[in-house]
Amino acid sequence: MLDKNGIAKRIAKEVKNGMYVNLGIGIPTLVANYIPDGIDVVLQSENGILGMGPFPFEGEEDADLINAGKQTVTLLNGASIFDSAMSFGMIRAQKVNLTILGAMEVSEYGDIANWKIPGKMVKGMGGAMDLVASAKNIIVAMQHVNKAGESKLLPKCDLPLTGIRCVKKIVTELAVLDVLPTGGFRLLERAPGVSVEQIKNATAGRLIVEGEIPEMVI
């Protein structure tokens, strides 16, 4: 079973040279720490950065320079700053190659819910609805089951949707799966020490297991 950093490490392998990548808040943010040397990518932050760098050194933080999670960050050489309309313009126009974000629920058709729990929590969608509606390549980083032990990979989402038929791939503490256009979670890899049986038990939506399922290499 993977911890949060393990999930981030596995997702980092999906990041290819030359990509422009938008990382959501939470586990997706950690992905930046594991992008291998020699892979040149540009991180987009939807509040208006291309070329986002690491956190600043202590004492060098700048109130005018934050990421989409409102954390102080730095700019790498070659970075650029732009306004919010252009930021979502480049997302809508599919110039950003890869979007990695978290989810509360994903359906076997690739629907995603991650912004609201009616009556309990309403934080808002931020840029998530724009990202999932436009991005061609969306990877979800999430826990396979919730705190009550219930599957978050479902036949149909129960929570209010963020977007429909958009998630392409999911990485959880148990597995890597892709979402088939015809419906269903196809199991691609098992987390170290996790059996296919465990993944079956944790997946409420249709799970497709074809042949021998390899263990992840991270």
Binding site: F88, I91, M129, D130
Partner: peptide, 13 residues
């Protein structure tokens, strides 16, 4: 409260 997508907010402006 009316919550709207961030890109929609920017583009409506």
């Amino acid at each position: 409260v009316e919550l709207i997508p961030q890109g929609t907010l920017a583009t409506r402006c």
